[in-house]
Design a binder for these strands. Structure first.
Lengths: 182, 182
DNA sequence: ACCTGTGAAAAAATTCACAGCG
DNA sequence: CGCTGTGAATTTTTTCACAGGT
């Protein structure tokens, strides 16, 4: 068993917050005791949609793509990278851990053949918008975008942006505030 | 010149929001015209603390470290990766674009000698906490942490966490909600 | 005695709407 | 006329605090 307070400490928040959040998905704690770890874990997996695997295509076989492909926590959670695509002829025909790197021209064919629902976009900013449009048109439902551009896509395609520079800038901002206070 | 509405469209928010946010740092727009692009850019650089360079050490020369080291937007914004550290003897002694990869045992020495203020932690979860503590003790002011653990550090050290799995999970959650609505 | 679940209160963020300047 | 800057209204999020199970 684990209490809301113990969870809060790990997550960097408060017990009340944890209870409010969890209660919005139903009440599965036990008064006086806390939450059972296994049921809680199972319920969160359900909420996050991790009880079934997701077919993922990685678009962009550069350094960021490489890091993401090797990231063990993706596979752990049921994200299956079933295809890798790139435009560089020097990379096409190669393979990472047995998964071939294919020509990005085959994007639509791969999405169809492999029932890809999620695309991880790890390409330069200039290439992102057209590739995102093609992925969306091919039927992809969600895009995890590492390019520093806001993608304009038709309704119904979920986009999540990750901007690594922003995180460092936030740190820089916080440290500058400290300096200013002195 | 650019209007708050035009900025909002690019950023995915509203004009009122942009104006409120900017006004909290003073008023530097022109009524009837909008914001001058150059002055606005300069002011934001100031606010983010990007008008001076930051000395950064990259701890962890794995795939994520490699991607970050090559990320052009860090250098652009004045983040100087002045040292790379790793514990793998196979990597130590090598170099990335002229920057040598040194033994992580030299962390304290490097932080002192190079006046490192920010550490990018790109190491496995199990190694993160002790390395963060050492960096903090050596005088580092901010840590950008890619390991999926909540670092416990003394007051006064800023920590920003980046968790790549969380972003994919959020996408999975959103798509599951769509499925449930059907 | 302990800890959840949740209304009620408080705080924070967002939106509205418009006076005022260019 | 156009667009900022900003109080006021509204909505959302967080915290409080305690009734009610175990």
């Amino acid at each position: 068993m684990v209490s809301s307070e113990a969870l809060a400490e790990r997550a960097g928040t408060t017990g009340a917050q944890v209870r409010k959040d969890l209660s919005s998905f139903g009440s599965f704690g036990t008064r006086g005791r806390g939450y059972g770890v296994d049921p809680l874990h199972a319920r969160i997996r359900e909420i996050l949609g991790l009880t079934r695997p997701w077919q993922v295509a990685l678009v962009g076989a550069g350094r960021i793509g490489s890091a993401l492909h090797a990231y063990p926590h993706f596979r752990d959670r049921g994200f299956r990278i079933v295809a890798i695509l790139d435009m560089d002829p020097a990379k096409i025909g190669g393979a990472w851990e047995g998964t071939p790197i294919r020509d990005v021209g085959e994007l639509e064919a791969v999405v169809g053949a492999e029932s890809v629902e999620i695309v991880i976009l790890a390409v330069p900013a200039s290439a992102a918008q057209p590739l995102a449009e093609r992925a969306a048109a091919a039927g992809v439902r969600g895009i995890l975008n590492f390019a520093p551009v806001r993608l304009r896509l038709p309704e119904g395609v979920e986009v999540n942006n990750v901007n690594l520079a922003v995180e460092l800038e936030a740190l820089s901002h916080a440290l500058s505030l400290e300096d200013a206070r002195r």
